[in-house]
Design a binder for these strands. Structure first.
Length: 112
DNA sequence: CGATTGACGTACG
DNA sequence: TCGTACGCCAATC
């Protein structure tokens, strides 16, 4: 057993803290967890997120360019975009508009 | 058990 | 601006 939350579980915890209509990046989460070198692991965590018992709003996590790179993992190609647009996030060509404006950095918003 | 892959990001030319 | 190379590390082949 792990005394502390595993890396994946930490990622899930952060992602769940993302407010509706806001977004963040894999790198930002990785950096917040002091694992900036493992941004890829955040992606893997999201892939594993389906295993997670609780819901993980993975659609609010995009890459550094604001691209919905993970949309293909939502079953439908437009599912991720639809979820975001439903929260008021404008998207064009799989890219989040006002990305910098909607960016939710855990290192700042969630800093302790 | 070694090689490949991947929902990333930075560095370099 | 664009393409290529590399690091990172778990999971998969």
């Amino acid at each position: 057993m792990h005394d502390e939350l595993s890396f994946f579980e930490k990622v899930y915890a952060v992602v769940r803290e993302i407010p509706s209509g806001r977004i963040t990046t894999y790198g930002a989460i990785a950096r917040y967890l002091a694992a900036s070198k493992s941004a890829r692991m955040v992606g893997w965590a999201m892939n594993n997120a389906h295993d997670c018992k609780e819901y993980v709003p993975a659609h609010r996590v995009v890459n550094r360019q604001g691209l919905l790179t993970g949309k293909v993992h939502f079953g439908s190609s437009d599912a991720m975009q639809m979820l975001l647009e439903k929260e008021g996030v404008r998207i064009e060509k799989d890219r989040v508009l006002d990305f910098a404006k909607l960016f939710w950095d855990p290192a700042i918003e969630l800093k302790l």
